[in-house]
Amino acid sequence: MRELFTADAGPALINIALLAILFVVAIAIARLRSLFAIVMLSGVYSLVSAAWYIAVDAVDVGYTEAAVGAGMSTAVLLGAMLLTARTAKPEKPLKKLGPFLICGATAVMLIYATVDLPGLGDPNAPANTGAGLTYLQVNWFDTGVPNVVTSVLATYRGFDTMGETVVVFVAGLAVAMLLGFGERSLAETLRTAKKRRGKGKEGEGS
């Protein structure tokens, strides 16, 4: 029990606090019905998980999560929410039982599987002694780039990154094809603005 109160307790407490906030936010999302609150809380979830990424040394991932999860995806979700609805219909209590049982069973199976996993932060875990360690050792003489994440991303796994870039591009193209490229609405906005100004009404009301 005494080793719980050493210098290592600080990071552990940060982890516990962040994970507790994540739990609170996730349960709130599950219980809420206002879509605006749900979207905002999903942004909060992303931001807190970004803080947790920083706490486990993944600075690049934390940065990405903060920019993409908390910034971009909240903006996209808000835009979609404006186009669809504001509130979700209340769910029937009986319908919640099935998913609850399925999720509980899955959780039990996954927790049973973690018994075989190496402990959190184990330096001798197979995942940490294989390719990852080799990248760290080889990186400096191979590429001369201090940030190993960047060099793995662009050099060692450049082909992978090319695929991801194409996926992002295709997803953007697909969204534009589903919803229109936006020019039509631009023309409409300009027309209505001109009409408004022509009629002499008050500018930019709502």
């Binding site: 993944a58 690049d60 991932v61 990405t64 999560e65 993409v68 995806s73 990852g132 760290l136 997803a171």
Partner: peptide, 17 residues
């Protein structure tokens, strides 16, 4: 270990797309 960082970094961006 930098390898999972790289994989998850791209996964997050693809996720928002």
């Amino acid at each position: 270990n930098p390898l999972p960082h790289v994989l998850m970094l791209t996964a997050i961006v693809v996720g928002v797309a």
